[in-house]
Design a protein around this nucleic acid. Structure first.
Lengths: 356, 356
DNA sequence: ACGTTCAGCTAAATCCTTTTAGCTATTTCG
DNA sequence: CGAAATAGCTAAAAGGATTTAGCTGAACGT
């Protein structure tokens, strides 16, 4: 009841309620009533009112008063979707925090915050269009709907987008087509004749690109489409279930491309549970965004995983925008590193294909 | 040069520089010069000055003015160390964000931020003692030095600590001794006679407890200490290196407890590379904080991994503190779930020990 | 010539908190 | 008793940005 939607409880509300001045309330809130000689009984009454009225301090007011003269605070945010895998966000966070630590001085302080939205519903995120929340933002893991929203509504602060191309923002992304094409080549070169691709139901621009380019490349070399498998979510369990379902229905495949690394974890599980061997029965190629690929049994070949490189580009870009530089590139393309490991190195030599 | 340490550039600075009023500058910054009929030439001059003087908006000022009447913003933070593994932080973030989404209304908005410090150097984190940064904080992955600091300096806002017991704060932690004891039992029951424990060089209170309790339990049952192996860092690569070093030096072990799950990834790698089989040559028991344990080959038995449960306790606790509730528990103990999987289920029956 | 409209701008209020200087009434001291 | 000290409190300013109401001068209409 004390929290009516009317107006927030301020120190003045409390002061009025108790019958003292706002200064007295502030003094008590800061626990400085002893040095400022407030009567213990008054302190108690103020404390009680604070509690009863449900006072919540207004940090903007405090900050304005307290820190103003010297430090200036710069608020940066990482915007990501709930549904997205976390390693990328972690990498961005680490890189940003490190940059921020380097730039922090006695008169400039940074605050890095992470904000999450539901994939595809970025526009429902409250406060996104307010000019008073962030100095700058790194945005990642968006879906097509979010993209549309961003293209329409210009955000009132500098934005760097990772993994997606958006006309109105500064973007960092993997070279389009590269990953899909390369993964197809790796599988086909290993002798696969029945390649498949496994992706999550929600496709980001990057993962959609990977799938499309893979299909195109397989089509070009084999003259037919690869199998396309869809996992409900990106978690290993979902991926495993999707693949097990495919095998159970008599599906076949001798080479698999998984478009994110969490899918590869589940795929290994399903393949090995079905009695198939990697790489001899099924070669697997995936994405090495997280450091795990090397530790799979057998070690996973990866054709993507430009996260580190993208983050390394994105963070300095954000600072350039913050500084108000004019000639900041609108788009930075990154070529992911390729690691060939045991998961695609078959003991039996690939049979020569007709027409190759 | 425009950024002298004297005083920040404000709208007034710019106004004076251009020879207009602060209101005009504000109008231009908000891109409302058309509807407010500023002369295009004036707009241009203001824009130029903004650029030249390196204006950085003061968000506190903006927020104070703009959002005051209706919304109040509540700033929450997750404080964690750079060196810590990320899954826990991710879980906290998700849980907090979900709680926050549920509580957000037209007149209350939350901002969740993540702040990182260097393990053991929490007190060097600037702004931690300021009362004007956070309404509340969830703190995790601290080391002993950070603990001392927290016990001395009371933070001027509600704090919930995860995984550590600190006298002055509200804490959520796994039941002390449980994990170490239980993991020892699991290995010994599987017939291990040469148990070992692998931990990272930096020990948090929780991991230190696990190691100690494990040693105590092994001592009690076997009458001798287990081998204690230390990995430089928590990453799989470091864990693998530590174990390979031990094997290379002729070290033996037939049962291993890894105190974090990333260490288990490296341990599997090293064990299998050395030609040993899990669980027959070496049984392994670990921690299931991250959903991966089930997908190891063979699936990893876990005796810890109370992260989810701890997070589920910590988040509501923070909100209770924020609401100013009086009878909030000082300490919540959580019992981790135990999952016995293939990594500790040997085909050969354990030999009966003398005296059991 | 005078009222009206409009372009182009400004003064001042407001948001909330904290701190400084200072006020009043009471007590203490000489 | 008068002066000084003290306890206990308050008024007011400051901090930065935004917005509302309103001002000035020029153009326009009659």
């Amino acid at each position: 009841m004390a929290r009516g939607p009317k107006r927030p409880v301020t120190v003045h509300t409390i002061a009025e309620h108790v019958g003292v001045s706002a200064a007295a309330v502030s003094t008590v809130l800061a626990n400085r009533h002893v040095e400022r000689r407030l009567a213990p009984e008054t302190v108690e009454r103020i404390r009680k009112a604070v509690q009863e009225l449900g006072y919540v301090p207004n940090m903007a007011g405090r900050r304005l008063r307290v820190q103003s003269s010297a430090t200036r605070q710069i608020d940066l945010a990482i915007l990501t979707s709930f549904e997205a895998p976390l390693p990328l966000v972690s990498q961005v966070l680490h890189a940003l925090q490190q940059a921020v630590d380097a730039q922090t001085s006695s008169h400039t302080r940074y605050a890095v915050s992470i904000e999450m939205f539901h994939a595809g519903h970025l526009q429902e995120k409250p406060g996104l269009l307010d000019a008073h929340r962030y100095h700058g933002v790194i945005l990642t893991n968006t879906l097509a709907d979010d993209d549309d929203f961003l293209a329409r509504a210009r955000l009132p602060y500098p934005v760097v987008v990772i993994g997606r191309r958006i006309p109105t923002c500064c973007c960092v992304l993997e070279t389009p087509g590269f990953v899909g094409q390369r993964s197809a080549e790796v599988l086909l070169d290993a002798g696969c004749r029945q390649p498949a691709v496994l992706h999550g139901r929600l496709l980001t621009q990057a993962t959609a690109e990977r799938v499309t380019a893979f299909r195109r490349a397989v089509m070009a070399r084999l003259g037919r489409e690869p199998t396309v498998l869809e996992s409900e979510r990106l978690q290993p369990a979902a991926a495993s279930a999707a693949l097990q379902g495919y095998f159970a229905g008599g599906g076949r495949c001798d080479g698999l491309f998984t478009v994110t690394d969490s899918l590869a974890v589940g795929a290994y599980h399903a393949i090995q549970r079905s009695g198939r061997k990697i790489p001899d029965d099924v070669a697997v190629v995936g994405v090495g965004d997280f450091e795990l690929a090397e530790f799979f049994t057998p070690p996973l070949s990866t054709v993507a995983g430009a996260n580190e490189a993208m983050v390394a580009e994105a963070v300095p870009l954000l600072f350039r925008l913050l500084r108000g530089e004019k000639n900041v590139p609108q788009e930075v393309l990154v070529v992911p590193p390729v690691y060939l490991r045991a998961s695609t190195q078959r003991l039996k030599r690939p049979r020569k294909e007709a027409g190759s």
